[in-house]
Computed example of a mutant assay.
Amino acid sequence: FFRDEIPYIRASLATLLALIRDSPHAILVQLPQGPLLLETLLLKTLRKYKVVADVHSGFLVTMDWKGRLLNTPFVRFLQMADLILVHNDLVLNLIPMNLRAKTLVVLDPWYLICNEEHKTGQGDYIVFPASFAPDEPLEDVINSINSFNIDIRIYVTGNWRRQPRIVKYASNRVIFTGYLKDDDYYKLLLNAKAIVTGTKREYTSLMSAWEAIAYAKPLALTKTKTLENLFKDYAIFYDWRDSRSIVNAVKTVLSSKPNLRAREKLKIKALNGIDMLKNKLEV
């Protein structure tokens, strides 16, 4: 990953040098951003590698001017990729029909997150892993927990400076941790009683949900078609616009145990997806 800003000239040059130096058999291009896809496809004619387009919803569903500039013009180049990856069935429906034959649905390899199967701790708090993006129902969850006076601490991880006004909710029960190193973050998850997370946006899956499954934690999620399709057998769902729905979901996960049978089914599905990807790359 080469950090850069628009128009990504330094990142483009760094990518070029890396491809010349490493001579890879295949390149997995995580999308967005669109210019990276175009660059790897142009260089493909010289370096003779396979291009795998790892398509996330933000590449196909643009919400602002930046997305329309950096993603929309480049969607047409998916036809030149050797293989396309998506991470849920609803995003698959956004892929043009003529490209679906070379598109695989591959779940995130969440089983790599936790080293020990079903390793868990027993804490007295819940965690909301936050990115402080506009589509997160963080404020709705905090307000609901406070309004109904649920006797539980909630740790909100992530860089709250992206949304500074949110810290007005800080209290003995609502703790903003700021950015945590991986070890500290996973230790917090390990000892949590449950994970609450979500998005108001369709087509979006959540790494925080996979982390909850990796650590075998009860999970409360917003009720979107995408999340229900992925996690219907594991998670408890809530309507982010309804405080009582949020509270009921939080109370349910606090009194629940993780569905280990559903967890195992998700692991098998994830492993099968990775096997299909490996087979395609070996052809």
Rank of each mutant, 00 (worst) to 15 (best):
I154Q: 03
I154S: 03
Y155A: 01
T157F: 07
N159G: 09
N159S: 07
N159K: 10
N159Y: 13
R161I: 01
R161Y: 01
R162T: 06
P164E: 04
V167M: 03
K168G: 11
Y169K: 04
Y169D: 03
Y169P: 08
A170T: 04
A170M: 13
S171Q: 05
N172C: 07
R173K: 14
T177K: 09
T177L: 11
G178D: 06
G178L: 12
G178N: 05
G178K: 08
Y179C: 02
L180K: 09
K181G: 15
D182R: 10
D184E: 13
Y186V: 00
L188A: 09
L190R: 07
L190G: 03
L190V: 04
N191S: 10
N191V: 03
N191C: 05
K193Q: 12
I195G: 06
I195A: 02
V196N: 00
T199P: 15
K200L: 15
E202V: 03
Y203R: 12
Y203A: 00
T204C: 14
T204I: 14
T204Y: 05
S205C: 11
M207W: 00
M207R: 07
S208F: 04
A209E: 02
W210A: 06
W210C: 09
E211L: 00
E211S: 07
A212F: 12
A214G: 08
A214S: 15
Y215A: 04
A216E: 06
P218S: 09
L219R: 00
A220H: 03
A220F: 00
T222F: 01
K223R: 15
L227W: 09
E228S: 10
L230G: 06
F231V: 12
K232E: 11
D233V: 02
D233L: 11
Y234S: 01
Y234W: 14
A235Q: 01
A235I: 04
I236N: 03
I236D: 07
F237P: 02
W240V: 07
R241S: 08
D242H: 06
S245A: 12
S245H: 08
I246N: 01
V247P: 02
N248T: 14
V250R: 11
K251C: 10
T252S: 15
V253A: 10
V253M: 10
L254Q: 10
S256G: 14
S256E: 13
K257H: 09
K257L: 08
P258V: 05
P258W: 04
N259Y: 03
N259V: 03
N259R: 06
N259F: 04
N259D: 15
R261E: 15
R263P: 05
E264K: 13
E264F: 09
E264Q: 14
